[in-house]
Design a protein around this nucleic acid. Sequence first.
DNA 1: AGATGGATGCGCT
DNA 2: GCGCATCCATCTA
Length: 210
Amino acid sequence: MDYTTYFTQNTTDKITKDLIGRPLIFNNGEKLGGYIVEAEAYMGKKDRAAHSYAGRRSQANEGLYRRGGTIYIYSQRQYFFFDVACQEENEPQGVLVRAIEPIWGIDTMIKNRSGKQGVLLTNGPAKMMQAFGIHSRHWDLHFLSDSPFTIDLDDNHKKIPQEIIAAPRVGINQSDPEWAKKPLRYYVAGNPFVSDMKKRDMREDHGWKE
DNA sequence: AGATGGATGCGCT
DNA sequence: GCGCATCCATCTA
């Protein structure tokens, strides 16, 4: 399936859930990446927690307004976040990829993270971008297929979780409890690379089937 | 192992 | 000035 179809033919929360277990690759000379284990949906103008809430639009969040499959890289403090716009142009919804289980180019990612390894390598949205060596918004507004980023949509390459948990999103404004509580964060139950996963909740098999 | 709070830069009001 | 879609060192166990 092509990116446009994939990122427009379903509701954003369902797309987010479906991304769990798919490979995310950043290949800018060397293949880096792993399986998506955690992601959050942002539901657009009506979503109090979304950058596009109430139709807010500026150079900083323009990516959300582009067609589904467009990369939206947002910076906050010294950190960078990787999102993909969902739905048609001017319907500013998107997915935030929060964590991957590292598989490809692990040695390079450890170097990019100044020696940090194990779960600390990629168990958070800004950590993942550091692992890829990304320290700018350079790829913001690029379409996925015109960038070094690949999200593998081949079902044969997708890892299947034993269980996907839906929970409230992390670190968002609580002033609207209705939206703050919505279970729009999806993650692989028991996977050690999910942000803030408790040691006692981790599973030996990382929560994958087989 | 788990919880806490300071560091930190930039877009927006 | 303010308010963050965070990270990590440090503190109590």
